[in-house]
């Protein structure tokens, strides 16, 4: 069964600055608590979780104009997965970052979605702390 989770956070930093980190596939492990490494090879990325689980992913979209990053986990347990990070310029030197997760089975949407909420908090902490 299909599940969707969406989290968002406003960051007091320019969209360009935030996108420089959030849009860099290889740097996910810098701001996603519980991901200890993220290595890319072309449109393939492999993340390793804090519990030691390697998760292969396919990068679907990395759009520097729209500031949208999309990927999917390719583990067999997923019938479907899509993760989407949007960095939206609010034109006041702040931005809104939206991290959406779709998954089948739906339980994984919730489990991953819990991680993305923590990731957004960490992204905000890093970006606002680095001003």
């Amino acid at each position: 069964m299909y599940g969707t989770i969406r989290h968002e956070i406003r960051i007091h930093r320019s969209a360009a600055d935030v996108w420089a980190l959030a849009g860099d596939a290889a740097r996910l492990c810098e701001w996603f608590p519980g991901i200890v490494s993220s290595e890319t090879n072309g449109n393939q990325r492999t993340i390793v979780t804090g519990s030691g689980i390697p998760m292969p992913e396919e990068i679907l979209v990395c759009d520097n104009t729209q500031r949208r990053f999309q990927y999917r986990l390719t583990l067999p347990v997923f019938t479907h997965h899509r993760g989407t990070i949007d960095v939206i310029d609010l034109h006041d030197d702040t931005c809104l970052v939206v991290y959406s997760t779709e998954a089948d089975p739906r339980t994984m949407a919730l489990v991953i979605g819990g991680g993305t909420a923590g990731a957004l908090q960490e992204l905000k902490r890093q970006m606002e702390g680095a001003r």
Partner: peptide, 17 residues
């Protein structure tokens, strides 16, 4: 803390490992 925790984000789930 939640038990389903593949990211091992919660201390409860990390001690044994």
């Amino acid at each position: 803390e939640p038990f389903l925790d593949p990211f091992a984000r919660f201390p409860e789930n990390g001690f044994a490992a």
